[in-house]
Simulated scan of single mutants.
Amino acid sequence: MLFYIISLIVIAIDQLSKLWVRSSMVVGGSRPFLDPYVHFEYYQNTGAAFSSFQGYGKLFVVFAVFVTAVIIYYRTKGVLKGTWMELATGFLVGGAIGNAIDRVLFGKVTDFIVLGRMTGIMNIADIAINIGIVAIILSVIFRREPKQSYS
C-alpha cells in the first residue's frame, strides 16, 4: 500500500507544482526561492535530463510505462518487498508517471527547480526519480539476507 500512496503523492505534488509554474511564470522567467540554494526558472524540456535527446520525449513515455509495468509485475511476484523498496519504487514510479503526464499532455516537461549553482533545471518528478534510484541502490546494498542454518 505504501508504494501506491507514495506514487500518488509524488504525482500530485509534481503536477500541482508544474501547474503553478505554468500559470504564474513565463518561459525563461526566474523567481528567487531560498537563494542562494534554490531558485525557480521556468523551462520546457522536450528531451531528457540536461536537455539531452531533444524532440524524443514521446519515447520516454513508452519507457515510463515499461518501467512502471516491470515494477508492478515484480511487486506482485514478491520480488520487490520491504518498506525501503516500497518507498523507493513508489518515488521512481511517481516521478516517471509525473513526467509522462507532461509529455503526453504538452509534448514537453515543465522544469523549474535550480539547486545552488547547478546548471541543470529539474522538477519534482526528476527529484523523486533520483530519490527512488538512490533508495533502490541502498536497499540492495544493505539488504539483510536471512541467516541459513547448516545443520
Rank of each mutant, 00 (worst) to 15 (best):
F66C: 10
I97S: 00
S30H: 14
A96Q: 08
L87D: 05
L87H: 04
K58R: 10
G98N: 09
L87P: 01
A69T: 12
N99M: 05
I137W: 09
M118D: 07
V93D: 00
G47M: 01
D14R: 00
G94K: 05
Y150F: 15
T68R: 10
N99Q: 05
P32Y: 11
E41K: 09
V104G: 01
F63D: 03
N123K: 07
K147S: 14
M25T: 00
L19M: 13
F60V: 11
S51D: 11
A48W: 05
I101Q: 04
M118F: 12
Y73A: 03
R22C: 04
I121P: 10
N45Q: 04
F3D: 05
F50Y: 10
F91A: 04
S23C: 02
Y73N: 13
N123F: 07
Y4V: 07
M25V: 02
R144S: 14
R31C: 10
L87A: 08
L59Q: 05
Y42E: 13
G95D: 09
R31P: 04
K58H: 09
V67M: 07
G82C: 03
G120S: 14
I137Q: 03
L8S: 12
I71P: 05
I72Q: 08
S7P: 06
L92I: 12
N123Y: 14
R143E: 11
I97T: 00
K77D: 09
G120A: 15
F53E: 05
D111W: 01
A125Y: 03
R103H: 09
I101F: 06
S151C: 11
D126A: 02
V70I: 13
S52G: 06
I131S: 10
V79A: 11
L8M: 15
D35V: 07
N45L: 05
Q15R: 03
L8Q: 14
G120N: 13
F91K: 03
I13E: 08
A48E: 07
F106Q: 07
I97V: 11
V38E: 02
Y43W: 13
L34V: 00
G94M: 02
Y42P: 06
I133Y: 01
I127R: 02
V62H: 03
A88I: 13
S30P: 08
T46F: 00
D111R: 13
G28S: 04
R75D: 08
M122K: 11
S17Y: 12
I101V: 15
A12W: 10
M1K: 12
I9F: 13
N99W: 04
L115E: 06
T119W: 15
L115C: 08
W20M: 14
